[in-house]
Design a binder for these strands. Sequence first.
DNA 1: TGAAAGATACCGTTAGGTCGGTATCATGAC
DNA 2: GTCATGATACCGACCTAACGGTATCTTTCA
Lengths: 198, 198
Amino acid sequence: MASASHRKKQPERVRRTLLDCAAKLALEQGLAAMTVQGVCHAAGVTKGALFHHFASKQALVEGVVSDLIGQLDAEIDAAMARDPEPYGRYTRAYVDVTLHDPMMTEGGQWAALHISILAEPALRRIVSDWFAERLSRHHGTDGGAELELVRLAADGAWLAYLVRDRPSDPVPALDALRARLVAMTLAGRPGSAGDDRA
Amino acid sequence: MASASHRKKQPERVRRTLLDCAAKLALEQGLAAMTVQGVCHAAGVTKGALFHHFASKQALVEGVVSDLIGQLDAEIDAAMARDPEPYGRYTRAYVDVTLHDPMMTEGGQWAALHISILAEPALRRIVSDWFAERLSRHHGTDGGAELELVRLAADGAWLAYLVRDRPSDPVPALDALRARLVAMTLAGRPGSAGDDRA
DNA sequence: TGAAAGATACCGTTAGGTCGGTATCATGAC
DNA sequence: GTCATGATACCGACCTAACGGTATCTTTCA
């Protein structure tokens, strides 16, 4: 809040603060409502500083998105590391992370941001590329049709919990759904009975 | 295009034209890029006319959204009327309509608009209410957990085809997925074998 | 001292919205 | 019929505000 003038200069820290504040504002009201003035004010810095660190608003936003995706990426990696079963490992991690409580319940704010991201073509590209890369990387273990169905359902659930802007429902059957989806990934594995993978 | 001044006044027609042009522009470039000036120009009227028919831009946009939802609603009703099997009738119609080719392939333009709609809280409310109403109406025939899963997967597929901004893929396995989802709705019906509805 | 970091003041654009005016329409009286 | 009259439909110039971005000047650090 206080002016950062006659203070010890910490460029990296300011840059991080800018990124964090931008993410926070975007989370609260969506990307469209996020203004550079607002970010500067939240970060206790002036526009001069912001435009010193980021060439444009677009650059700032892309930085935020990359951060977010990196975070998601890391969480998925962590979830995969805890899973002994190779078949469908990525899909399970994906379901686990995207349908994890903090992601959904915490104000449902992630929603606004994610949607805003998808609304902008340039940012959509980033997400799209990440998805494609991740998918091709695990094609060997997660290429089955039933696994794709599971991931689609997870996306749909994410979307559904996103659309209901009434946070009255305390995320009702989310855990049940997650368990069911995880079970589906295991039911289709090679050593299992119902083996109908395409 | 020509000025509608010394012309026979047709308020309803102008209103409709405004709505249609707004929808078209929103489809082409997303809601955020849709400007009242643009709509007026496309409709061959001035801002005075627009703000005479709609109290604000928000009102115009809400009108567009309501129109769109009404259209979707009608398509679903039509699909349901063609379906003899009561169990899961709504879910099948939902899958059929949302994953229908024109909705997806046609320039992928619906995507931009739908996403824009979901990005704005006020509009999200409209969609949310419609969903809730429709769901509660068919709770008797479409309340099963496996049907919910099918609808979620349809939503996920819709989202997936929406995110890929590369229209290079000619909607690959869409028909297969649709068939699979429809089959799932029929497999779980009372007279069938796998009867595990909750 | 000179380059990086940040502040302050300013600009050009563009958007949604307003406002007074004008043309057209629906009436009812005569 | 037609003519006054009030309401509706529409025009078009103007307003205001906020946004992203720039230019320049000051402070801090190595």
